[in-house]
Design a binder for these strands. Structure first.
Length: 294
DNA sequence: GAGACGTGGCC
DNA sequence: TGGCCAAGTCT
């Protein structure tokens, strides 16, 4: 389905955003591209409320990429705290180093240069290029995908994995003027986060309710294939989390028994520890102890 | 392209 | 209670 670039969609959503946007620090006028980049990595699969305090600590401690790059990667992992998916901290540290080496310490503004950084995929490259540099890029995150699925495709949820059709649709809806496109992108994301939510959407507050295809169709329930539910208890992921938590909370290197106590099943425990080492999240010392990477 | 990868809050 | 969900990326 092709929808022309249309102010009929743009104006109500942009106006809604002006009136309803959350006052988030990475959206402040004095937010730097580095601050935006850090926020985008932290916000991957992680709610805003949990990101806020950690983001403030990071930006105070490492106000620019060079400051982070100058520290051991383990410090990034430790400061990551309980945000989850700690490989993100490692990749952010590696990105900071790459920014210093390849871009003179300045976060690059081009989508291609951003995409080349570790931990930055299509979404994050588009988000940073848009929100930090006011560029014109299709920003297709889970919020935008859901809004477009409903507003245009009359589906309660978007497909399981992103399709070319979704990308084309998002691009076709992008305002022509780059700064306006950047504003539009963040506005649609915010609409998805606050109104057009996954469960119990607040349609009465929607600025484009009258144009919503899903609404006009009678809000039919999702009838596609079951969406993946992630188990956690008893998994390697939980085991890895326990091990890393010990290391984060320790002052320095710890002995093996201190790690062993967090998981009773030895085969899984060893597998998880080996995987953490392979991922670069844990450093096995010569003296047999374990530490966050140096 | 399916599966791995953390953590916690909500209904 | 427990499944679902949260600004994804990588292999």
């Amino acid at each position: 389905m092709q929808i022309p670039n249309s102010p009929a969609y743009h104006d109500p959503i942009l106006a809604w955003y002006e009136a309803n946007a959350r006052d988030l620090p990475w959206r402040a006028p004095d937010a730097t591209p580095w601050g935006v980049l850090v926020s985008e990595i932290m916000l991957q699969q992680t709610p805003v409320a949990r990101v806020l305090p950690v983001w403030r600590e990071w930006l105070e401690r490492w106000p620019e990429p060079a400051a982070l790059a100058a520290e051991p990667s383990g410090e990034a992992v430790r400061a990551w705290g309980r945000l989850g998916y700690p490989r993100r901290a490692l990749r952010l540290h590696a990105s900071a180093a790459a920014i210093v080496e390849r871009h003179g310490g300045e976060v690059p503004s081009s989508h291609d240069d951003l995409l080349a950084l570790p931990g930055i995929g299509a979404y994050t490259a588009a988000a940073v290029a848009s929100f930090a540099f006011r560029g014109r890029h299709a920003v297709l995150d889970t919020n935008v995908r859901r809004v477009l699925a409903r507003l245009v495709s009359a589906e309660e949820y978007p497909p399981r994995s992103q399709t070319r059709a979704e990308v084309r649709l998002a691009e076709s809806l992008l305002p022509l003027d780059p700064p306006t496109a950047a504003r539009w992108s963040v506005a649609v994301m915010e609409l998805g986060a606050l109104v057009c939510t996954a469960r119990s959407p607040r349609c009465v507050d929607c600025p484009v309710l009258a144009r919503c295809a899903w609404q006009r169709a009678g809000r039919p329930a999702y009838d596609g294939p079951p969406r993946k539910g992630q188990t956690y208890a008893g998994t390697d992921r939980q085991c890895r989390g326990r091990i890393l938590e010990v290391l984060r909370n320790a002052e320095g290197p710890v002995r093996k028994p201190e790690l062993d106590v967090v998981w009773s099943e030895p085969v899984q425990r060893e597998r998880a520890l080996d995987a953490l080492i392979a991922d670069g999240l844990v450093d096995p010392l010569d003296d047999g102890r374990y530490a966050l990477p140096g």
